[in-house]
Simulated scan of single mutants.
Amino acid sequence: MEAFLVSVLAVTVGEIGDKTQLLALLLAARYKKPGPIVLGILVATLANHTLAGLLGQLVATHVDGTVMRYLLGLSFLAIAAWTLKPDEMDDGGINESRYGVFMLTCVTFFIAEIGDKTQLATVALAAKYSDLTMVIAGTTLGMLIADVPAVFLGKIAAPNFPFKYVRWCAAAVFAVLGVLVLLGMELKF
């Protein structure tokens, strides 16, 4: 259960103000079809985070435990620093294809998530926790918690949302995780 809860928390706060959340706002404002957009986010996130989780477990099985602890702790600290940098995205080049809004969302979300801080957090979480299913379920739920409201709010709330403060909170969460891992401490729920 710890793997699930930490994964939900880490990705939810890490996703606020992220480029994929901005992509959700953009797609919702442009196409006004929340159903296919939410489903596309779900499918893309499951695919992307499953691959990231498998990579994390592969790394965990081939790297010494002490080295892994330092790599994970430093990774969380790096994600904390990265979280402080605001993402920007313009709407150029996003066109509804012949496959519709669902496929457009799947492809753009999958690509946008490659190398993103939430994907890297998924790799790190899967390396830390042996329960891959709970990590993927948690990171996917975290993405949905952050992105689904963006889909339904569209452009209305985006200009007024305090992304700066949420980024600072997200950075703090990742920094605390990093320090706890470096100190060899376990977070218990």
Rank of each mutant, 00 (worst) to 15 (best):
L180E: 03
A157R: 02
G73M: 12
A175I: 01
N48Y: 06
K19G: 02
G92W: 05
L71H: 12
S130P: 00
G73L: 07
L26G: 12
P34C: 08
T66G: 15
V11C: 06
W82C: 02
A81G: 15
K117D: 10
G73C: 09
L180A: 04
S75N: 08
A44Q: 10
L22P: 05
N95I: 00
Q21S: 11
F110T: 01
V151P: 01
P86M: 13
L27Q: 07
L5P: 02
K33C: 00
I114Q: 10
M89W: 02
V166K: 03
E2Q: 13
L72W: 04
T108C: 09
A52C: 09
F110A: 15
K155G: 15
K32D: 09
I79F: 12
S97P: 01
E2L: 01
A10G: 03
V181S: 10
T108D: 02
P86V: 06
F76H: 11
L77I: 13
V173E: 05
G93R: 08
L9I: 11
V107M: 13
P34Y: 12
V179K: 08
D18Q: 04
V148K: 14
V13N: 01
A127D: 08
Y31D: 04
V176A: 15
G184L: 03
L25G: 10
W168L: 13
L51P: 05
V107G: 03
T105S: 15
I37Q: 03
H62C: 05
L132S: 03
I145Y: 00
R167G: 04
Q119C: 05
K117R: 15
L58Q: 11
S97L: 08
G17L: 10
E15W: 07
V6A: 12
R98N: 10
I16L: 15
P159D: 07
D18E: 10
V8I: 15
L120A: 11
A124D: 00
I79H: 07
T20P: 02
I114G: 07
L51V: 09
A175L: 11
A150W: 00
F76P: 13
Y31W: 14
T122K: 06
L144D: 01
E15C: 10
P36W: 04
G65L: 14
T118F: 04
D131E: 14
F110Q: 09
E186W: 01
G178M: 07
G115D: 09
T133W: 14
E15S: 11
A172G: 14
A146P: 04
L132P: 00
A112V: 14
K128S: 10
L77H: 12
M103Q: 10
A146W: 06
G53A: 11
A150Q: 04
T139Q: 01
C169R: 00
G93D: 07
K32E: 11
A44R: 09
D147Y: 00
